[in-house]
Amino acid sequence: MGIELELRIPQSTTRRSHRHGDSLALALETLVPAGQGRLSRIDPYRDTRFTEQDAQAALREVTALADKCTSPFQEAALLDLAEFLEACARTPGSSLWFLGD
């Protein structure tokens, strides 16, 4: 089970990351409380779309999770996610897709 990231910006190139797919899925599964916040809406088996507003809210959640990481792999996955969330949040019309297995 892995989650790939895809940042879609209208009239621009699409940015993708699959480097931390398995670690990201595991971090979200173990660190994010079920039913709480935007990150809990990510489905590891289906595609999930975040708007700019979702990304802004989730960015605060990722920052809070950094202290809870139990491995350097989780930390790297969350840092990668934070970069994508930040880019989405600051780019009007963009969306961040979480591509589940």
Rank of each mutant, 00 (worst) to 15 (best):
T14Y: 08
T14R: 15
T14Q: 15
R15G: 08
R15M: 11
R15S: 14
R16E: 15
S17F: 02
H18A: 15
H18C: 12
R19T: 04
R19G: 09
R19S: 12
R19V: 02
H20D: 11
H20I: 01
G21H: 02
G21A: 08
S23L: 05
S23G: 05
L24E: 05
L24A: 06
A25G: 14
A25E: 10
L26P: 01
L26Q: 08
L28P: 11
L28I: 03
L28N: 05
L28S: 10
E29C: 08
E29S: 13
T30F: 09
T30P: 10
L31C: 08
L31H: 04
V32Y: 00
V32K: 01
P33F: 02
A34S: 13
G35S: 08
G35P: 08
G35M: 06
G35K: 00
Q36C: 05
Q36S: 10
G37F: 03
G37V: 04
G37W: 04
R38H: 03
R38L: 12
R38I: 02
R38A: 12
R38T: 07
L39D: 06
L39Q: 12
L39I: 06
L39N: 07
L39H: 07
S40P: 04
R41Y: 00
I42R: 00
I42F: 02
I42N: 03
I42A: 05
I42E: 02
D43T: 01
D43G: 05
P44A: 09
P44F: 02
P44V: 01
P44E: 08
P44W: 00
P44Y: 01
Y45C: 05
R46F: 03
R46D: 14
R46C: 10
D47C: 11
D47I: 04
D47Y: 00
T48R: 03
R49L: 14
R49M: 11
R49N: 04
R49I: 13
R49C: 11
F50E: 01
F50P: 01
T51C: 08
E52N: 12
E52G: 11
E52S: 14
Q53P: 02
Q53K: 09
D54S: 10
D54Y: 01
D54E: 09
D54R: 02
D54M: 06
A55Y: 00
A55W: 00
A55M: 06
A55H: 02
A55D: 04
A55L: 06
Q56D: 14
Q56V: 00
A57K: 06
A58N: 13
A58K: 07
A58I: 00
L59D: 04
L59F: 11
R60G: 12
R60Y: 11
R60E: 15
E61A: 10
E61C: 09
E61L: 13
E61K: 12
V62G: 07
V62M: 12
T63H: 15
T63P: 00
T63A: 15
T63K: 15
T63N: 14
T63Q: 15
A64C: 03
A64T: 05
A64W: 06
L65N: 11
L65E: 11
A66K: 15
A66V: 10
D67G: 15
D67F: 07
D67I: 05
